[in-house]
Amino acid sequence: MMVYILSFILFLVGLYGIITRRNLIKIVISLSIMEFSIFILLVLIGYIDGGIAPIITDQVINPTYVDPLPQAMVLTAIVIGLATTAMLMAIAIRLYRKYGTFDIREIKNLKG
């Protein structure tokens, strides 16, 4: 049970980072931390004690496989995470060029 709680704590660490950090890049990093805590949770859900990698071979008879579906989900989610992170970084770099700073306190044109 401990590991599940730890992954949830990691999620909260990411959330804390997003709320408190003032630097665009640090916000992106916090988002990544949040994301990966969920990936860890997903892999943990699929884990079975004593299970081996779910690859069919002739060597092992009646093997216990770990659940492959969460792993497939994590792989897909990593690809999506790559796209979102790339998008965020691209926007952050462009913001830096327009404003000359990564500080979100100085980037606030939109209000109301």
Binding site: L15, M34, P70, A77, L88, A92, I107, N109, L110
Partner: peptide, 25 residues
């Protein structure tokens, strides 16, 4: 303005996506 709006949208949208993925898990 566009860049700032998009960054805001992305941060909140990503948090939403993570919550959705979390609930899927």
């Amino acid at each position: 303005k566009e860049l700032e709006a998009s960054f805001k949208y992305q941060v909140l949208g990503n948090i939403a996506s993570f919550l959705i993925l979390f609930s899927v898990a």
